[in-house]
Design a protein around this nucleic acid. Structure first.
Lengths: 349, 349
DNA sequence: GTTAGCACTCATCTTGCCGGAGTGCTAATC
DNA sequence: GATTAGCACTCCGGCAAGATGAGTGCTAAC
């Protein structure tokens, strides 16, 4: 059941009108489109067909047509033209992104805020999950009698640490030995590899004198590794939702904001999305609560290895072409930023 | 112009009714109050007086009376009874607070979430500003040829660090020397003292060999100290606002949420509030945007020295007595938690 | 000083009406 | 056979009129 050229044109016109105005589109309005030289009646017939095929719906008998999720899907897959950003726009975005401090987290946060400003949608950005980050250096430092600081440095320049309360007395020598052993065992391993490889077992047999020390240190080491995997979620333009007619209903606005307030859950959902630019439209979202939203996410890369996410969430009625172009440009930009300038010059915390 | 006993009683009844129902209170309703054995007409006269004195307002002629901010202020200062929490409530709260992991930040976050749940308002919590935190130990650690990790440990157990890209080559010996000098100079100083006391000047004259090193390190040291002063703002129950009749207007809800989205600004405002339980009602807030909100904040202490904030924000029509009692109990609880268990057992980040 | 009574005000809810936008169907037209 | 004009029909949204009811202010009586 292929769509005729004409049906496609009509569908496209309906989508573009509806996206612009948020009003159901009628046959008369459409017949005035320059590319559509047909009378309203003809268009009505075509629209009736399109409705039967599931591409359009009808809020009520005497209203115009509204695109269905299926129509948006078709649009995104086939009809949509990616809007190439103008030179000026590109410059503005690039400038604003570069204008930030060169702190990693701040740059990400800023990218989200730019995105929400340009698209007038709610945007978010997720810092990379450091599963693939490689351990470089582990050290244990004496602070006072019963406190030792564990420090872990990774290739990406991230430094993590934890103050450990020691239950057994330690000597500086033992501490150094343990540091070296740990570095020897874990250096070059990714965090996720390290997490599945607890070397405490070896200690217990190998070096009896250190087993007590290791028992104090290793659980903390593991927990710190886990902490290193934590990602930050930045969100911007939450109140943009109030400008969107679809959410002029208080109950809907509430649900939307409530959904976005559940940061842990949201983070989980965003992380598990595939890489690249992914568009999910309305019902395609597995989540009940997101059934009338569309979500566009993209991944950016740090050092070509760590993967973060950035994207927008908004009503199914959104400018898919424009938004994807912007996100694409933005992630390209981030990829470059984090390729060239990356190194140890980033911040912990 | 003192208020008669009777006027006070009437005012109190109006406030308690209005807080409960969110509806303007009429004379007939009031005359049915058990403590108010007067006819509606008498009460009307008194209400007219109270209105003249600025304690009541009138949405329109044929509506009941609504308390003004001035009335709430009087209520909070003199009329309100602090509601002593019941044993069960106390136990529930204490249990839930204790049930969290013993990570500092998580506990604070959890406290905010408990607070918003119990009060049905929007709550927030601010981690302590560490201005008064005392430096304990500073170390510089070689990582690779041009990377050094700066580590700062404070009395409160906070460990901060920063990977530094070195522009000049270093020797391990120099590094140690600099570490020691810095520790010697800064140990026992508070962060705010340290920030106003850049010792780089001394280096340039004293130890020429190290001046290059210090020039690389010191700016990073200062920046890290500044970072250590950053506080985290947790917010919970943002969508509770939608349950409050005052905010059933979309525009108002939007403004409220927009205000709370500006985290930096909000943080600043909260920090600069006085310690102890502070209630600001409606117009008392210096901020335009908060003129129809009331804000209740309290401070909690860590180690008796560092001060954090916790509180709620909601409509001026709120249960001041109940809320302040809850906040008081919660901060007492936090104070105890952070007095006994504090030490080095907290997390960075 | 207190209260009953009464006229008056004003918001809100209900109802009915009308206009406009848009549809579906049929018959005429190209 | 595809296209179009015409027309009856549907439904939403806005508006006005009227009814309702809560509450007030004032006056006069208790």
């Amino acid at each position: 059941m292929d769509l005729s050229e004409r049906k496609l044109k009509i569908l496209q016109a309906i989508i573009s009108d509806y996206v612009r105005t948020a009003e159901p589109v009628g046959s008369r309005t459409l017949s005035k489109h320059p590319e559509l030289g047909f009378s309203p009646a003809t268009i009505r017939n075509e629209m009736a067909d399109l409705e039967e095929m599931g591409y359009l719906t009808h809020p009520h008998t005497s209203a115009g047509r509204v695109p269905s999720d299926k129509a948006y899907r078709l649009y995104v897959n086939a009809l949509m033209e990616k809007k190439e950003l103008s030179k000026e726009e590109k410059i503005v975005i690039a400038e604003r992104l570069r204008g930030t401090t060169n702190e990693f987290e701040k740059t990400i946060e800023h990218a989200a805020s730019i995105l929400s400003e340009i698209t007038n949608l709610t945007s978010f950005a997720l810092t990379p999950k450091k599963t693939e980050d490689v351990l470089k250096y582990i050290n244990l430092l004496p602070v006072d009698e019963d406190t030792v600081v564990l420090m872990i440095v990774s290739e990406s320049g991230k430094v993590s640490n934890k103050a450990i309360q020691m239950n057994v007395p330690y000597t500086e020598e033992n501490l150094q030995l343990l540091s070296k052993t740990m570095t020897y065992n874990y250096k070059g391993k990714t965090i996720s590899q390290a997490l599945t490889n607890n070397i405490i077992a070896n200690f217990e047999t190998d070096i009896v004198a250190m087993s007590g020390l290791a028992e104090d240190v290793m659980p903390n080491f593991m927990r710190t590794l886990e902490d290193m995997l934590n990602v930050n979620l930045y969100m911007e333009g939450l109140t943009n939702i109030f400008d969107i007619p679809e959410y002029s209903d208080l109950e809907k606005a509430r649900n939307f904001i409530q959904m976005l307030s559940q940061k842990e859950e949201l983070t989980r959902k965003l992380i598990e999305r595939d890489d690249g630019i992914i568009v999910t439209i309305g019902e395609e979202n597995t989540d009940d609560i997101m059934q009338d939203c569309s979500l566009i996410t993209a991944s950016y890369h740090v050092d070509g290895r760590l993967v973060g996410k950035i994207g927008v969430i908004g009503p199914t009625r959104m400018k898919y072409g424009e938004v994807t172009s912007i996100i694409e440009f933005l992630t390209d930009n981030l990829n470059n930023t984090f390729k060239l300038e990356s190194g140890g010059n980033e911040d912990d915390d």
